[in-house]
């Protein structure tokens, strides 16, 4: 399989020439940044306003008159937000780490061997993409309650990890496909076995793939709402998102608090994404573009 030469990015500077095409492009680029920033900005501004200012029907302000971090403080005092952050982080980190290790093996298997049933598995994965998730959730819920896994951490971990394995295997496989087999064969000649070849030779070259899979799994779990909503009702197991969702139901919605929580919920994913954006983009496009 050949891949799009996304890594090939020539750097050249041109002499500046006024062109309408260029002008349009700059306008488009500005538009797209504003499109992304505006809603996030609004969320942030709301989170640093006072309750009175937020619920002022006569006037909507575009910057906080009385800038305050009170909403954030309240979140940690009254709702015990720290506990839920710890839960979210724990689920996301454990899942991401396990998924990286597991999919390295399964991705390797899918990439390097041809075996009976491989095509069937890919086909099944395609079909699985098309089935509404909730359809599988119903029997899974029944199975889970039989096994006593509802409202347990084990159950959640299991659900998160297995939920990420198929997609991440496909991604990992695409990264393995890029590494020439000759690299490993050289290692075999030098007396390595397969496992050694993976860990000593392939692993260092695979780092971008591992980064991409780690980020996929981490953000998927950090961002999850429905898994936790469906399989847990005990608030000690809740993640940030479920906690925030549960705060909407009340009669008087505290939008300041919710927006503060939202900002906290989106920060880690934005930071992680900013650092490894290239690998993530690489990972997404690795197996998908044919020339």
């Amino acid at each position: 399989m050949t891949n799009a030469p996304t890594a090939y990015r020539p750097r050249y500077r041109r002499k500046f020439k006024w062109k309408w095409g260029e002008f349009g492009r700059v306008c488009a680029l500005v538009f797209y940044v504003l499109l992304v920033i505006a809603p996030i900005y609004w969320m942030f501004v709301t989170s640093v306003k006072t309750y009175g200012e937020i619920t002022d029907v006569s006037r909507v302000t575009y910057w906080a008159k009385n800038f305050t971090w009170d909403n954030y403080a309240h979140l940690f005092d009254t709702v015990e937000f720290g506990k839920y952050m710890k839960n979210s982080l724990l689920y996301a980190l454990v899942t991401a780490a396990s998924v990286v290790v597991i999919t390295m093996l399964s991705g390797y298997g899918m990439s390097r061997y041809s075996f009976r049933g491989k095509g069937f598995m890919m086909g099944m994965w395609m079909v699985a993409q098309m089935i509404p998730g909730i359809l599988c959730t119903i029997p899974m819920y029944v199975i889970y309650s039989r096994l006593g896994l509802i409202n347990t951490r084990t159950g959640l971990f299991f659900m998160f990890i297995t939920g990420q394995i198929p997609f991440c295997t496909i991604t990992m496989r695409a990264f393995f496909d890029r590494i020439p087999v000759s690299l490993e064969e050289a290692a075999f000649v030098d007396g390595c076995n397969r496992v050694q070849a993976i860990f000593k030779i392939v692993l260092p070259v695979l780092l971008p793939g591992m980064a991409a899979v780690f980020v996929f799994a981490f953000t998927a779990v950090w961002n999850d709402l429905m898994t936790c909503v469906i399989y847990t009702s005990k608030s000690s197991l809740w993640t940030i998102n479920v906690t925030l969702k549960s705060m909407i139901g009340r009669v008087n919605v505290e939008w300041g608090l919710l927006m503060a929580g939202g900002i906290i919920a989106l920060l880690p994913t934005i930071v992680v994404f900013a650092f490894v954006q290239r690998y993530v983009v690489d990972g997404l496009t690795a197996g998908s573009v044919k020339e």
Partner: peptide
């Protein structure tokens, strides 16, 4: 990194954001 941010966001946070933006009173 900036333009692709929404890709990394959760449906939940995004939904929250727009639910608030489209609020009928405020």
């Amino acid at each position: 990194s900036i333009a692709f941010i929404p890709y990394a966001l959760s449906g939940f946070v995004c939904g929250l954001m727009f639910r608030w933006s489209f609020n009928g009173e405020y």
